[in-house]
Amino acid sequence: MEPETLEARINKATNPLNKDLDWDGINAFCEQLNKELEGPPLATRLLAHKIQSPQEWEAIQALTVLESCMKSCGKRFHDEVGKFRFLNELIKVVSPKYLGSRTPEKVKSKILELMYSWTLGLPHEVKISEAYQMLKKQGIVKC
């Protein structure tokens, strides 16, 4: 198999020209990030960048990659997602003070859904809960 970088893999998995979700590409990205020593921190940086894309389909695909990696990758990846460094990038997308006013509703609600599911599924990642509670307090999470 030819060597592929994480960057090449995320570009493939989130390509706006994809007609459907590219599950092979998504799984390849998850597998690759587990193999690399610096995979998780690099993967979260790449994902944050894609999630902030002004193209809705690119952002939604990136969020699907994130969701899938949270299910199939281990603690090293969870720990990176559970840092404010990454959570802040998600917060920027939903906050009207940053990118929130020009982010599609679908992207914002997917981010809030994912964060909520992690507060339940990964209760030991306390920073995720802290970030989610803050969004609730600020009225960005409704209900």
Partner: peptide, 15 residues
């Protein structure tokens, strides 16, 4: 230097 166990983080953003 490269740290393989990088525990550094930033503060939670205020929105």
């Amino acid at each position: 230097t490269v740290s393989f166990h990088d525990d550094s983080d930033e503060d939670l953003l205020n929105v």
